[in-house]
Design a protein around this nucleic acid. Structure first.
Lengths: 212, 212
DNA sequence: TTATTTCCTGACCATTTGGTCAAGTTAACG
DNA sequence: CGTTAACTTGACCAAATGGTCAGGAAATAA
């Protein structure tokens, strides 16, 4: 019988190994070529496995994609969870921003996969977005809203602020190619992300107005 | 003989009309499904034209795509051109940001098309990015750099600032679906983009630190 | 009007690709 | 060791899709 990945049916050793191999290979391919642009053969090849064998673990291409997406999404949202209502507001936001930027640097593939899905209307994860994601964001937006009310932050809309942080940091993963084209090899320099972080942080905290 | 779109061969009346119809239809389809995800049939249907007829004007799918991309890219970069070295720095940047946000609102399709291309490695427009785009950005980054030197702006890296502006504003087009999922119907509210603009501007100018 | 060029279409083709299946191989377990 | 269940594969299929082509319809020019 087929193992039906994702079920709780007592996974075999080989099953665990192979599913892991497939999902890992699929992440990179999907992120690069998108869902339609990816062929099962490509994934199979990268996972060092025959196509029928791959399809033994995941019955449909869509199943692999969803599996990869869910795993990525989970990882992707972790930093926001860490935003601490009891911490210092400016510091918390700085930390969160730095963490997101760090993720864009270390795992741009995940960011691109996610961006691609959203860009195409998020057909596979609409429910997650409207469910757990919305819930988490609502919660953290409330925290930020309180900080604003208490006068610990400038008067800004919490949701738009969160969007701004996402946009700014993920841009370094999603639009890497463009940055590379504009800046030349600088992008690979070790201090590139450091400089990005400094600039982002400066603007988020102090804004562009010069202080004398 | 085939008309070979893009050539300077004395375009007929019908040719002009149909090429326009095709490119316009293609923009929306490509932006929604990506290059690989789009079928010629889809474009033909949207352009109210048979597939062979469409292929009479554009020999290959790629030709349509490139045509759409180039046209979009050009429009997309116009606002940056308007950044005036002799204007007031903060005002110029505010204006530019507002303009980009406005474009994201009015023409999200173009933004998504572009984002999609970059995300997939920009295989078709690498030369443009490294050419005219780089040139333009270099020029404007120098302008901003001067403002910083003159003490009219806070100490920030001009390139990263430009990236931040792009990221923040385009996010409203590219990640619209996600925002919609999180905020509910609010996204369609008339004051939604106004609120976005206010927040973005406030942060870019003043930062998050509360001022008493 | 007539000749010529441009435009348009149905039918067709080759390739790609998601997915199946019967049969063989390997691992696990008693 | 033997039996059973899990795993693997080559061969195959149907549908989708990019693209061609010969010939007909419509403009346009003479």
């Amino acid at each position: 019988m087929s193992p039906r990945a994702g079920q709780t049916k007592k996974r075999t050793r080989i099953q665990a190994i192979n599913e892991e191999k497939i999902v890992e290979a699929a992440l990179e391919i999907f992120a690069t070529f998108g869902f339609r642009g990816t062929t099962i053969d490509q994934i199979a090849q990268k996972a060092e496995m025959s196509k029928p064998n791959l399809l033994y673990y995941f019955r449909r291409k869509e199943d692999i994609y969803i599996s990869v997406l869910r795993r990525t999404l989970e990882e992707w949202l972790t930093p926001l969870t860490a935003l601490n209502p009891k911490g210092d507001p400016l510091e918390e936001i700085s930390k969160y921003t730095a963490l997101k930027l760090e993720m864009s640097r270390k795992n741009p593939t995940a960011s691109r996969l996610f961006a691609n899905e959203i860009l195409h209307g998020a057909p596979m994860i609409e429910d997650v977005l409207k469910g757990s994601l919305k819930q988490l964001v609502d919660e953290k937006a409330a925290v930020i809203g309180n900080w604003v009310k208490e006068g610990k932050l400038a008067q800004v809309d919490p949701y738009h602020l969160i969007f701004m942080i996402w946009a700014t940091t993920q841009h370094y993963a999603d639009f890497k190619v463009q940055m590379h084209a504009i800046l030349g090899k600088t992008v690979d320099a070790p201090d590139y992300y450091e400089q990005a972080g400094t600039t982002i942080n400066a603007i988020f905290l102090e804004g562009l107005k010069p202080r004398s």
